[in-house]
Amino acid sequence: MIARTRVVLDAAPSLGSLYAKATGARLRQMLPDAKREALDLPHVEHQLAHVPVDPAKLVAYQRLMGDTVRDTLPSVFVHGLVFPLAMSVMVRDDFPLPLLGMVHLSNQVNHVASIPVDATLGAIAWAESMRGHRAGTAVDVIVEVTDGTRVLWRGVSTYLARGVWLGSKPGSQTEARTPFVAPARTGSWKLAADTGRAYAAVMGDYNPIHLSAFSAKALGLQRAIAHGMYMAGRALAGATPQSTGYDWEIEFATPAFLPSSVDVAFEDKADGMSFSGWGARSGKPHFSGSITVAPRTSASGE
């Protein structure tokens, strides 16, 4: 593995400025295919020595998700705290994929141990595993959150730059997809038109595709879509253990256009729980995932 150069950030960049920068990057990266072919991920990792946790934001988050207010950090809240750091890697001039318009495919998270609200946290983020995907190019963005001595939280977010091909465009790879059949629902979420704005107000993630029909249209969507991490947060609320670590993952299928009625199903498994959500009217799958609670003895970084 090629060693990564560490870039230390003084403070978490604001997502607003990152989105502005991303717009520029999008234009800059409209390069001919041939030029992009040689591009590689930057061999860097961005570090934030101190990740501030605002207890008031934590309460607001827990209320938003319908979770109990506790002094420990929900896993998706941690994701939100370090998302600006992850973004800072993706908006670098030498990051080869256009950020805006990127599709969020999945998350895999090791929530290694319970994280108290007053923990002193630091984080490191980098990108790896840029690879071909049937619809473009996928990349993993890794973030590790530590308390200075060990990794408490490790998240892999996978994004897809749709229609962007690093090499030559692959031939027609039509994977036979099994049609989605909704299971018996165990719950129903009514996502109001302002769901994206409510999430942004708490987590600071003002991505225009989630905020309003108007801002989403500007980016080519018919209406605003529900934030994937909002849905992940709802799924995990009340379903994760409090005193031990756990792993969870979520995979996104089709977007949920706001306002939306999402039917969900939770199912107990021997070592945790699986969950899925789909459009109550459209019947289209929005997400599926699982929570795995397993006794963990140690956690490794990479």
Partner: peptide
């Protein structure tokens, strides 16, 4: 139901079908 968002009747509909 606060934790599921389903009405009691819609919950029973799941059970009735099962």
């Amino acid at each position: 139901e606060p934790r599921t968002g389903l009405s009691m009747g819609d919950h029973q509909a799941i059970t009735t079908k099962a």
